[in-house]
Structure formats: C-alpha cells, structure tokens
C-alpha cells in the first residue's frame, strides 16, 4: 500500500541528475560550425570529474555538444551510434545530416519526457551538409530551435549576450575561436561548475576536428577578486 501511495516508491528512473556537465556553446562561422565546452563533471556541487568529453562526432556531418546528466548523455550516444550504424548499413550513398540528427534527438527527448522519464540534458547540434550550415539545440523536454549561435544552461545567461553583441556571419576561424574563448572565460569566472580545461571543436564541409584539452589564460588579480568583501559593509 505504501508503494502505491508514494508515487516515487519504487521508481527505476533518473528523476534528478547525478553527475552533470555545465554549459556548451556553439556558433556558426565563415566555413562551418564551432563549439566549445569544458571538461568538468559535477557530482551535485562537487566538481568530481575533470576530463569528461562533451563534444562528439555523430556520423559524417554532425557535431553534438551536451550538457546535463552525463550517464544520460552516454545513453544518447548509444542511440546515435545505433542510428548511424543502421544508416551506414544501407550503403546507398545517403547519409543523415545535422538537421536529421537534430530532429531525431528532438523526438527522442520529447518521447522520454512524455514517459515522465526525461533524459536530463540540453544538447547542441551543429554541422555542414551540401554547403548548408546548421546549428540548433534541444532541451530535456524536447524544446528545439535553430540559431546562428546557441548555448546551454549558464551559457544562455553569460555567453549569449556576448555573442549577440559580437557574432558575425563572416567570422574567420581565428576570430570564432577567440570569441568562444571569451565566452568560456566569462563562464569560468562566474559559473562555479565550470573548470579551466576546455575543448573546441570545428566542423566544416571538409570534416571535423576536436581540439586537445587546454586551459584559458586567466587573470585573478582584480581587487574585487582578491578581497570580495571590501566595501561590503557588515559582511565578513
């Protein structure tokens, strides 16, 4: 009777996230798409893992960036591996592009939320196929859209205002990377879950590359960083 009354009595589902990754950001640039994410994995508010890859290639034309529950992300990768495998098995020259993968994931996410068993992630999909650049995002409940620049989580608050100011259609690769690093640095300063170990990925018509992990240059010697409570009357 107890189990009948308590709705979560014998739940087998991830109803809340355990290990999570924080923001991912993605932008279109002159030749394709750029994405950036750090490598931290938070267990609650403890930064428990520090080399989790959150940017992955999906098929030939698509790049996936994920934030949120890491094991759910791994589950999504499993679905995508199967999807791409079956697509390749046709062996007919057709292949799923970023748009198709984005739509597929939207269906998966929305379907799971309808079962009250959501995959606890925000995803970003980017790619280039037949000269068409594509960049979009899906949330854990299946909300999806396309844009010239996208971000998840804190990135929506801290990175996108910068992108709205500074993003251009004709950014070069170097300018794009610089812009993403500026966003990631801001996130590093202000998002407690962010870590200073990031990866940047590039995808163009020619193919894709994911950078080795590296650290951003930071400057912590601002007076307010050194002694945050100066001038804050009454605080300790």
């Amino acid at each position: 009777m107890d189990t009948l009354l308590s709705s979560e009595g014998d739940s087998q589902r991830t109803q809340y996230p355990y290990v999570t990754g924080t923001s991912v950001i993605g932008i279109k640039y002159k030749d394709g798409i750029l994405m950036a994410a750090d490598m931290g994995g938070s267990y609650g508010s403890t930064i428990r893992y520090k080399s989790i890859e959150r940017l992955k290639q999906v098929g030939k034309h698509t790049l996936l960036g994920a934030s949120g529950e890491i094991s759910d992300y791994q589950e999504i990768l499993k679905y995508l591996d199967e999807l791409i495998l079956h697509d390749n098995m046709w062996d007919d020259g057709n292949s799923l592009g970023p748009k198709e993968v984005h739509n597929y994931l939207t269906r998966v996410m929305y379907n799971r939320r309808n079962k009250f068993d959501p995959l606890w992630n925000s995803l970003i999909l980017g790619g280039v196929k037949n000269g068409q650049k594509y960049l979009g995002s899906v949330s854990m409940i299946g909300v999806h859209f396309e844009d010239d620049h996208v971000a998840t989580g804190f990135g929506n608050h801290l990175a996108r205002p910068i992108l709205r100011e500074e993003w251009r259609d004709d950014l070069t690769f170097e300018e794009g990377v610089k812009l993403l690093e500026k966003c990631m640095r801001n996130l590093l300063y202000r998002d407690r879950s962010a870590v200073n170990k990031v990866q940047i990925a590039k995808i163009t018509e020619e193919g894709m590359t994911i950078s080795q992990p590296y650290s951003l240059k930071t400057y912590w010697d601002f007076a307010a960083f050194k002694n945050p409570t100066v001038g804050a009357e009454g605080s300790w």
Partner: peptide, 15 residues
C-alpha cells in the same frame, strides 16, 4: 518525415 523532418530517399523506400 516525422522522425527526421526530411524526405525518405527513394532507393530506401524501394528496398
């Protein structure tokens, strides 16, 4: 079309 928001390749339908 529902799953991928794109048209089914003809060759696949034929198979």
């Amino acid at each position: 079309g529902y799953t991928y928001e794109s048209p089914l390749p003809v060759g696949r339908l034929v198979v």
